[in-house]
Amino acid sequence: MKRVFVLIFGFFILLTAKAQDFDVYPRTKDDMMNFDHMPSSMQLNEYRMLQRNIRIQDGLNAILVPGYVHFKAGEKKAGYWLLGLRLAGYAGLSAVYVSSKAKGEPLFQINPLDKPDESDVINVTGQWKVDKSDIISTLSITVIIATYFYDWIHGKAKLESKQELIRYKYNMKMGLEKEIKNGRIVPAVGVSVKF
């Protein structure tokens, strides 16, 4: 009976949890209908870059889609590189898994014992013998993890640097506009006649 209550309780908790978007820093206001007064010379690409922000969810997405953060930061070339490298990592890992299954050997076998097949083994300082497949699998795992963190950290830094440049540009122009108008920013009223 207790178990049934625990299950029902758990079910209701899950129901409420499902309604929430997983986000450590939730948005406190609805900015979907917040229209900005932007300079008319602003490009669509610049506007997109300013609207974007790298959040926890993007980090999670980057696990599934290699290069996701770079793609979001508008760095397509780097994104495709990361995608390729991650796929190579997965391919290496799969190859090692399939080969070890076929041979009936466990993964990561670093041992001082004699191996039956000497061609698959590399001697390290004459004492340790490391399987070639273990090197490939270690490299593959390193590539997978490294590309993930590079994507997240470098991608975020790239996006922020782009946003800084765009903000700097328009802020500088506003400053210059003010300077040119002798430091006075006042709404001007004019009359124009068109024929």
């Binding site: 007064h37 300079p39 500088m172 122009k173 210059l176 506009e177 920013i185």
Partner: peptide, 17 residues
């Protein structure tokens, strides 16, 4: 009126920048 102040920068501003 003030909303439109930065709507477009003048050619002089663009040149200075």
């Amino acid at each position: 009126s003030s909303f439109g102040l930065f709507a477009q920068f003048s050619d002089t501003t663009e040149l200075a920048f």
